[in-house]
Design a protein around this nucleic acid. Structure first.
Lengths: 332, 332
DNA sequence: ACAATATAAGAAAACCTTTACGTAAGATGG
DNA sequence: CCATCTTACGTAAAGGTTTTCTTATATTGT
């Protein structure tokens, strides 16, 4: 089946009547050849349909031209979007993307990391994992870029401006007349969540309102959990608030559904803003006002940064913050 | 930074006092060594923390222990699920996954394919692309497995039982009392869609109903498009049906929203079933009855098959059909 | 005890590329 | 016109592994 032998640089050299070194130089545009030679070589490469053997290149240069990306769950739209952008960014640079689902499971994650090290990836992009990086650096001192989360000793990280997100959310709600804004957050109190809360509080203050603990609720950041919290809240305390800022869109949706089912109108009686701008926010009725993270910018920045690190350049900013934006739809 | 030199098989051999050939043999369990030697080698490998250089292996054996997966859009939950399952299946087998988004764009797709060929992937899993495979096979005669779609000269393919899906949908609607069931389908009349229609018609027949052309509507399979179709239909023909079978969940959701906004109750007046069982179907109110594709089985089968093909084994069944199941929720 | 065979292990070639080094021819400067 | 420099290109080593071919030693059968 796999009979046809692969064409190597040697065949090209022979056919073009030059040395393999020259062919290599032309391919890599390293200079040291005349215009005519270049022409001839390029032509024969085209004729033979030669494609370089990445294994040989990798062996020689100690590079694989591939980078690993670790995500908790590719099924999550936010991560998927980043991976997609990363993919197209890297394709243009002839890098490819090795994907790993950690499933929020350390053991699995470590297996993946080991695999990536063995595969000689040139770098790792770590999206929202929670592993101690120590583990990674032990295995190999590879360039690592973190997106979204900020583990303790992470060196290079790319984050959304979560503080601003919280601020924008609060301001939007206030400007639409809310006076008592609930903050429904992910129960895992990560730095991202903390920032969002800070922004939210700043927004309240700027709007002449003040924060109180009874405004803050937390739960596991899933639809079902958020529903339960909302149902319980409504039952126990009644509807003492007139706005909700939820820490992600699924939670926001859960709130909206529970409220609607209880005859409380959104945005009539209560206004809601979510976070992430997952596509579902456009498909609900009413469509959900939310804070959009710029997944493309996140991915782009991560891509550029890791490429720099791979090239050995110093990256000036260890921590870069990507702006977020408010998307006003029908729940405010 | 990257100062520490990598440990090679040679170092291990030296330290263990054997030849590199022996080390290689132990690693690959090829026999030709004594129990004691094996012990000693394994131990030194452990001590040095040696991991094999995949580039060297790939160069020598012409394998990469990686397989490429091409999807139209990783952001689509259906594809993401398959990729996730594939990932964990392959991890256990020490294969890794190179991911490529085709974005339904031929040019991009071909770039990816070229990239994969250069990267020496051992095989390609092609999820729902529409490219003529000819192109792929031209570049290299690699094992290719198709999932979900069936291009013309595809050799090995894994499909869901779409016919059964259509049948189940129709039966469910009929059993809940529907007599006039709309069929809202993807306008691209692919084989999968045709099968679903056939099943639907069989279901009608078994239920004592008959199909007529005015029951069939089509549009681009997106939320917004489906909305428009539904709105137009309602305006022009009124509500002459009492059930809808939509060819995917987003379209089903669009129908439900339009109906609800027009004061038509779901499932009270009209019952709806979708297709795919994307997670959003659980988060809407009411939750959507749908046909679930078994993404895990799809992925597993694809993984097993491609591994067989890579190993050079004949794959007995060129075409395998994975069962689907009806998930009854609140819209029927 | 001796030939025949099986077992364990080493030496070296091959896979394809990059790159340091070498060399010859032509260009430049005095 | 000679010394020096530049340009264009070739030679060969190196990178880590698998695998074929040998060889040395141990085991078996008679």
């Amino acid at each position: 089946m796999n009979s046809r032998k692969r064409i190597s640089i040697i065949d090209v050299a022979k056919k073009a009547g030059v040395s393999i070194a020259t062919v290599s130089r032309v391919i890599n545009q390293n200079g040291g050849y005349s215009k005519e030679t270049e022409q001839k070589v390029r032509q024969t490469i085209e004729e033979c349909g030669f494609t370089p053997n990445v294994n040989a290149i990798g062996l020689r240069t100690n590079r694989s031209n591939s980078i690993g990306v670790i995500v908790p769950d590719i099924t999550n739209e936010f991560f998927a979007k980043i991976v997609r952008e990363l993919d197209i960014f890297l394709l243009g640079r002839r890098y490819s993307l090795l994907i790993c689902n950690s499933n929020e499971d350390y053991a699995l994650e470590n297996m993946h990391i080991r695999g990536l090290a063995e595969k000689h990836v040139d770098g790792i992009i770590y999206i929202s994992g929670q592993n101690e990086i120590k583990r990674i650096n032990e295995i190999k001192n590879l360039p690592v870029v973190y997106i979204d989360r900020a583990p303790k000793n992470a060196e290079v990280l790319i984050l959304s401006d979560n503080e601003m997100g919280g601020y924008l959310a609060a301001c939007e709600l206030i400007s639409k007349g809310c006076r008592r804004i609930l903050f429904l957050r992910d129960i895992r109190y990560a730095s991202t969540i903390r920032s969002r809360k800070n922004g939210y509080i700043r927004g309240l203050r700027d709007g002449g309102l003040s924060f109180s603990d009874e405004l803050e609720m937390s739960c596991f950041p899933e639809y079902g959990e958020a529903r339960s919290v909302m149902e319980r809240l409504l039952k126990e305390k009644g509807c003492f608030f007139d706005g909700i800022f939820a820490t992600n869109d699924m939670m926001a949706l859960a709130c909206i559904n529970v409220l609607t089912e209880n005859g409380i109108r959104v945005p009539g009686a209560i206004k809601v803003v979510g976070f992430d701008n997952v596509s579902i926010t456009q498909f609900t009725s009413p469509q959900i006002t939310t804070i959009g993270q710029d997944t493309r910018a996140l991915a782009l920045r991560a891509g550029e940064t890791i490429l720099k690190m791979i090239a050995g350049e110093e990256v000036p900013e260890k921590k870069t913050i990507i702006p977020v934006h408010l998307i006003v739809r029908k729940t405010t």
